[in-house]
């Protein structure tokens, strides 16, 4: 039982439609310094929770801890594994990192107040998993900027120094036109790659019940020296999983999509689709969710 007297607070990992097996929960440690993972009930909803040290989850401590990347990573992993354990037997609504209540009663009251919404979300997510798909501009095709045309031959006459201003202007103009041609080629290539990413997105949506887009990740983050054109998530019926993965493999092998690289990971707990009353998300380059 959590209470501020015992110095613990109630950390929520996920909400389930039924109680996960005890072994699944006891197999994960949860957050360091906390108790074993356990369940609470709020009407028909089962909460997977853990007693965690209040000191670690006070505003100040949390802010300070999560501002250190290794601590953020440890915390994210602990959270993810708790959610994954809760998902080991059936649908879950995963909760965001650091969802903390002062007591079990508060947590139960909070979920009870939203029981219908939560049950609707559980129903929507049952038998479905999330697949993450990224599309990058192809690294193979990316380089090869058009080879610059040979520099306009310098006036070979010995009197070349005669009109430096004119020569400079001519060189400047041709430099500018070369630069703008290069930019045009680059832009065209990017436009084409973006269009291909949208093709991939459209193709995959045919196999998914929902799609969501995350912000494209930076090159620094991905380590890929090419822009990320699509960072999408698809909610796929387990029954269509093979079809979906088959479609991914087909897209990857498609000659017409050579200018892009497709990568994916999954199945994920449907993190990207757990928010209730979410407007139809638009996956696709540039189209950000509100």
């Amino acid at each position: 039982m959590s209470s501020s007297d015992t110095g613990t607070v109630t950390y929520l990992f996920a909400l389930c439609a039924s109680r996960p097996p005890r072994e699944a929960l006891s197999a994960v440690p949860g957050h360091p310094g906390g108790g074993p993972l356990r369940t609470l009930e709020a009407g028909e909803v089962v909460l997977v929770v853990q007693d965690v040290p209040a000191g670690d989850f006070q505003e100040q401590a949390l802010t300070e801890r999560l501002d250190r990347s290794e601590e953020l990573e440890r915390c994210a992993l602990a959270h993810h594994r708790g959610v994954a354990a809760a998902a080991s037997h059936g649908p879950v609504v995963p909760l965001p990192l650091a969802t903390v209540y002062l007591s079990d009663d508060n947590a139960v009251a909070a979920v009870t107040a939203r029981e219908e919404t939560v049950l609707a979300a559980l129903k929507r997510l049952a038998g479905r998993t999330e697949w993450a798909v990224k599309v990058h501009a192809s690294v193979r095709e990316a380089p090869a900027p058009p080879s610059p045309p040979p520099p306009s031959p310098a006036p070979s006459s010995s009197g070349s120094a005669e009109q430096p201003a004119t020569a400079g202007a001519g060189g400047g103009r041709s430099y500018l036109s070369r630069a703008s041609a290069r930019r045009r080629v680059l832009r065209d290539r990017q436009e084409r790659a973006r269009a291909l990413a949208l093709t991939v997105d459209r193709a995959l949506r045919a196999y998914a019940v929902d799609a969501a887009s995350h912000r494209p990740q930076s090159e620094q983050l991905t380590g890929v020296k090419a822009p990320q054109l699509l960072n999408a998530a698809y909610l796929v019926d387990d029954a269509r999983r093979a079809e979906f993965v088959g479609a991914l493999e087909q897209l990857r092998a498609d000659e017409r999509l050579r200018a892009v690289e497709i990568s994916w990971s999954g199945p994920w707990v449907p993190y990207s689709f757990a928010r209730p009353e979410q407007p139809a998300a638009t996956a696709g380059a540039g189209a950000g969710a509100p």
Binding site: R81, A85, S88, H89, T129, P267
Partner: peptide, 8 residues
């Protein structure tokens, strides 16, 4: 649900 072991 058999594949969910993938989670862990």
């Amino acid at each position: 649900m058999t594949e969910v072991t993938d989670w862990v």
